[in-house]
Design a protein around this nucleic acid. Structure first.
Length: 368
DNA sequence: CATACGTGGTA
DNA sequence: TTACCAAGTAT
C-alpha cells in the first residue's frame, strides 16, 4: 500500500470534484439533499445497481412521500413496493426505522454518522452516506465502489471480504475526504467506481484519476480489490403445488415472517426433503406424498395430478432451488389450518411475490 | 466473525 | 450452465 502526501491529496480532491461537477450523473435522488430521499435511495442501492433502482425509487416516493406515510403503510403495500428488488428485509427494516424515528427522535433525523448507525437498517456505509450527503459531515461512505477504487489507487491488498478491513479503508479515506464537500466526494467515488473503475472492464486509460491509479500504472489493476470467494449455493429441491379450490381460486401461502422471502406470497412450496421419499421415488410417489403432507399439515384433501414439466430453477445467493410443478384440486376448502388464503386471478396482482414465483407461473402457463 | 439474505447482468 | 459482480446489514 502506498501513501499520499498532502499535496497529492489536494490534487486528487480537485481532480475528482472537477470531474464530478462536469460528468456526475443526474439521478432522481440527487435533486435535493433531503435526508428521507437520500436514505430511501441508499437502502435501495444496497447490493443493487442504479439502473434497477431508478423506477423503484420514483414509485416509492409516489406511494410513500414522507416518513409518516411509510411508517403507516400496510406491510403488503410495503413489500409490493419492493417486489423484485430482493433482500426484502431492507424494506421491512425501513418501516421499523421510520417508526423508530417518529417515536424516539420526534421525527427529526440525527445528523451524525455515529447517531445514524443506531437506526434500524442503517449500517456504517449508509450512515456515512446520509451524514455526508444530507448533513455535510466529513465521513467516508465505504461501499463496494470505495473498496475497489481505493484498493487500486493505493494498492491496498487487505481482503475486503473480512469485516475488519472496513476499518482500514475508513481510516485511509478519512485522511483524503475534503471537509468542504464530503457528500460530493463520496458520490464521485461511487460514480468513478461504476464508470472508469469497474470490477471487470475498467477504462483507466481515460479515467480522470488515471495519474493517481497506482495499480493501473503498475499494470496490476485487475488484481484489486483482493476478496476471498464465497461458497457455491446449496441445492434444494421443492414441489410447487398449483392448487385451485372449487370456486376456481388459487391456494396461496404466505412465507414465514423470518428467513428467506419473509412474508411474501407463493403457491404452496413443499421441500422434497420433508416428504421422506425413497431415493427411487416416482412422480406418482411424489404426488401421494404431497397429498399426505397437505392432509397432515393443512387438513386439506388435495387431488393432484403431476405436470410433466421441466422443473423451474432459481438461484439465490446461498441456495439453488429446483422446483417440480404439480397441479391439483382441493375439495371443500376449510382453511383453518392453512397458512395462507384463496385468491382469484384478479386479486393475485395485489400480493407481493418473489421472482421465483414469477418463474413458476411462467412455466405453468408455457405447457398447459 | 461467518453466514443469511434476492435479483439482474456479463463472460 | 456456471461463476462472479453490483451503492450492505443483521445476527
Amino acid at each position: 500500500m502506498i501513501e499520499w502526501s498532502p499535496a497529492t491529496i489536494k490534487a486528487f480532491q480537485t481532480t475528482l470534484l472537477t470531474w464530478f461537477d462536469q460528468e456526475g450523473r443526474d439521478l432522481p435522488w440527487r435533486r435535493d439533499h433531503e435526508p428521507y430521499h437520500i436514505w430511501v435511495s441508499e437502502i435501495m442501492l444496497q447490493q443493487t445497481q442504479v439502473q434497477t433502482v431508478i423506477p423503484y425509487y420514483e414509485r416509492f416516493m409516489d406511494w410513500f412521500p414522507t416518513v409518516q406515510e411509510l411508517a403507516a403503510a400496510p406491510e403488503d403495500r410495503l413489500l409490493k413496493a419492493w417486489e423484485g428488488l430482493g433482500y426484502y428485509s431492507r424494506v421491512r427494516n425501513m418501516q421499523r426505522c421510520a417508526r423508530q424515528l417518529l417515536a424516539d427522535y420526534d421525527g427529526q433525523w440525527p445528523k451524525t454518522a455515529t447517531e445514524l448507525t443506531e437506526l434500524i437498517g442503517i449500517g456504517p456505509y449508509t450512515a456515512g452516506a446520509i451524514a455526508s450527503i444530507a448533513f455535510n459531515e466529513p465521513v467516508p461512505a465505504v461501499d463496494g465502489n470505495a473498496f475497489r477504487v481505493f484498493s487500486r489507487l493505493l494498492e491496498i491488498d487487505a481482503d475486503i471480504a473480512k469485516p475488519q478491513t472496513r476499518q482500514l479503508f475508513e481510516q485511509v479515506i478519512a485522511k483524503i475526504i475534503p471537509v468542504d464537500r464530503p457528500g460530493d466526494f463520496n458520490q464521485a467515488i461511487m460514480d468513478l467506481g461504476s464508470s472508469y473503475m469497474t470490477a471487470r472492464n475498467p477504462d483507466s486509460e481515460h479515467s480522470p484519476v488515471k495519474a493517481f491509479n497506482q495499480a493501473y500504472l503498475d499494470g496490476k489493476e485487475l488484481a484489486y480489490p483482493v476478496k476471498t470467494k464465497k461458497p457455491r449455493p446449496v441445492p434444494v429441491d421443492y414441489v410447487a403445488v398449483m392448487a385451485k379450490v372449487p370456486t376456481g381460486e388459487w391456494l396461496m401461502t404466505q412465507r414465514p415472517s423470518t428467513g428467506m422471502l419473509a412474508n411474501l406470497w407463493t403457491v404452496p412450496l413443499v421441500k422434497v426433503d420433508d416428504l421422506d421419499l425413497a431415493d427411487d421415488a416416482t412422480e406418482d410417489d411424489v404426488l401421494v406424498a404431497v397429498s399426505t403432507y397437505f392432509k397432515r399439515d393443512y387438513q386439506l384433501n388435495l387431488v393432484g395430478k403431476e405436470l410433466p414439466l421441466k422443473p423451474v430453477s432459481h438461484t439465490f445467493t446461498h441456495q439453488k432451488w429446483t422446483i417440480q410443478l404439480l397441479a391439483g384440486q382441493v375439495e371443500e376448502a376449510d382453511l383453518a389450518y392453512f397458512p395462507g388464503k384463496v385468491v382469484s386471478d384478479d386479486q393475485l396482482t395485489d400480493l407481493p411475490m418473489p421472482k421465483v414465483q414469477d418463474k413458476i407461473w411462467q412455466r405453468y402457463r408455457e405447457q398447459r
